[in-house]
Design a protein around this nucleic acid. Structure first.
Length: 567
DNA sequence: ACTGTGTGCGCG
DNA sequence: AAAGCGCGCACACAGT
């Protein structure tokens, strides 16, 4: 059953209970507290956990980021939802629903809705702020949902798009639950890591001693007493002045140089990065009461990957992962999918040879064993290059061998690239569709095809076309991998509810997600069970995306006290 | 003082 | 080796 929640002008909420055809058969008016009680009453409890499917509601709301934090703060979890804003974005851009009224209607408030995440004080999510309009225009979520149902029903492959929307919405629930619970973060450990590397903390605006010492050493060795080593321009000039033939200050270029300044300079850059990106300022801004609360943006990347806004949760450097420590009596279960993208490509292409090669073992080792390339490193470079569209170097050189060994898989990405070069859209496994190239792209292509086109015009057009082709080549794989990860995580979330008392606070719950990796914070006694769930959910995700096609998705699973020990 | 762009580097 | 995909963030610097 679907229940649509809508805020009324008077600050209350109307719950519209829909029948199987999507028509309203009952409306209930609720105030703030009444909403919590109403939602709680409709959620399956432990006792009803195996109640029939129909009895479990799917909450339909404008956006999960808008509605769910207050429910969580009130102690109410929901099992399933429809996030209308996220769903609409998919439906309006997918080629599977391109013919629907929803896709053809002009943009409305539903498209411009800013899905504001609760900010400022994440540990105390605001309860319903009745004065804050959810959206600018009065939008009717019942009507919107019905319109989306119609679009799905008319889709060329409704099952796929339906699964995608369910996964996207489940992801939105996970993102809010992660934000609500937070990732366990030991401020004292983080401080120790920083102090060991940089020296003791100093006042705001100053640089720690170790950083200052390295900067002084660099100035001395470059004979540049006023050099600001953070200035790329100044640094490049100073390096050239001492006779170093460099074109940039990137570390992989510096690393190749033979000069006494290189070592302290590289160390300076590394420590400076730690200091600015994940130093004490970051700690103060993002960690409170022993929890880091990532600010995920679900579907924030065109491919459907999550993005973050602030906090940099997707870029936590390895050297500070020591600060992620399970609570006393708890464990972290960290799992990542091994070689997710090439395995997803295997499923997309239905490439039996590749599926057989990778079954139950490291895929890159398998490519070596098959005699395709000589080393694991080569296998990895060749595979990634094929998916990213490498044109030079070892990767491009090895590609023909990969093509001979796995013709179907390589043909799939080559075809995606060719479609992109023609300005066409490409589609993920479940229906997420790449954007059309922009106006300027089309103009460049158009100009090159006209009679008076110059060689420069043609070269530019070819170059831009190839650029876009590399994007669409990667899109089909990355977007489908993101779908696998969403299905994986959504299934983990549902299974975890069956452990412990089913609450978030006292039972295993997700605390981190990173493209192909998840982390569960769990009471110690459930850790092994959680590890098993995580593996089982990977099998489920594979079946959801690829049915009976025998591609498997092995995981690396670690039960640890600190994230740093996970790999 | 504010905004946009380029550079560099962290992650997958 | 550091190119071939997708990001966010911090800083320097140039424009206003």
């Amino acid at each position: 059953m679907h229940i649509v929640l809508a805020r009324r002008g008077d600050g209350g909420v109307t719950a519209s209970e829909l029948d199987a055809a999507g028509m309203v058969h009952r409306e209930v008016d609720l105030d703030g507290d009444g909403l919590f009680a109403y939602v709680q009453a409709h959620e399956p409890t432990d006792v009803q956990a195996d109640a029939p499917e129909q009895s479990r509601p799917r909450w339909v709301w404008s956006s999960t980021a808008q509605w769910y934090p207050a429910l969580l703060a009130a102690g109410v979890r929901v099992e399933r939802c429809v996030d209308l804003v996220l769903s609409r974005r998919i439906l309006r851009t997918s080629v599977l629903t391109a013919g629907s009224e929803l896709a053809r209607e002009p943009a409305s408030g539903w498209d411009s809705t800013v899905v504001a995440a609760p900010q400022a004080s994440p540990q105390a999510p605001a309860l319903f702020d009745v004065d804050a309009p959810v959206v600018a225009a009065p939008l009717d979520p019942v009507r919107e949902f019905q319109s989306q149902l119609a679009a799905i029903a008319g889709a060329t492959q409704p099952g796929r798009i339906r699964l995608l929307l369910a996964a996207e919405s489940a992801g939105a629930l996970v993102a809010e639950e992660i934000r609500f619970m937070g990732m366990p973060w030991r401020e004292d450990v983080h401080d120790r890591v920083l102090t060991e590397a940089l020296g003791p903390r100093v006042a705001f605006g100053r640089h720690p001693a170790r950083l200052e010492a390295l900067a002084a050493r660099v100035r001395e060795l470059l004979d540049a007493p006023t050099l600001n080593p953070d200035s790329q321009t100044e640094l490049l000039a100073a390096l050239r002045r001492v006779g170093l033939d460099v074109t940039s200050t990137r570390k992989w270029e510096l690393r190749e140089l033979d000069h006494p300044v290189i070592e302290p300079l590289l160390e300076y850059k590394s420590l400076y990065r730690l200091f600015t990106a994940n130093g004490w300022a970051w700690l103060e801004a993002w960690v409170h009461d022993g929890r880091f609360r990532p600010d995920y943006v679900v579907g924030g990347v065109v491919t459907g990957r999550w993005a973050t806004s602030g906090g940099g949760a997707l870029q936590l450097p390895k050297n500070i992962r020591r600060a992620v420590v399970a609570d006393d009596g708890w464990k972290l279960v960290v799992a990542d999918a091994s070689q997710l993208e090439p395995r997803v490509l295997t499923g997309l292409a239905g490439d039996r040879a590749m599926a057989d090669a990778g079954r139950g073992r490291d895929l890159y080792d398998a490519v070596v064993s098959a005699g395709v390339v000589a080393s694991r490193h080569e296998a990895k470079v060749a595979m990634l290059g094929a998916m990213y569209g490498a044109t030079t170097g070892d990767s491009a050189r090895l590609k023909p061998r990969l093509t001979r060994a796995f013709p179907q898989a390589i043909a799939l990405v080559d075809e995606a690239a060719a479609e992109g070069e023609r300005g066409e859209q490409v589609v993920s496994r479940l229906g997420r569709t790449s954007p059309r190239p922009g106006e300027s792209w089309r103009e460049v292509q158009q100009r090159a095809s006209e009679p008076g086109a110059s060689a420069v015009d043609e070269r530019r057009a070819r170059s831009r076309a190839r650029d876009w082709g590399r994007f669409t080549r990667n899109f089909v794989v990355q977007a489908s991998a993101a779908e696998w990860a969403l299905c994986w995580m959504a299934d983990i979330r549902l299974r975890l509810r069956e452990l412990g008392d089913g609450s978030l606070e006292n039972a295993p719950h997700l605390v981190f997600f990173l493209h192909d990796e998840i982390m569960v914070h769990t009471p110690e006694q459930y850790a092994d069970h959680v590890a098993e769930i995580v593996r089982e959910s990977a099998r489920t995700a594979g079946r959801l995306l690829f049915g009976t096609f025998p591609v498997d998705f092995p995981l690396t699973v670690a039960v640890v006290d600190t994230y740093a020990d996970a790999k």
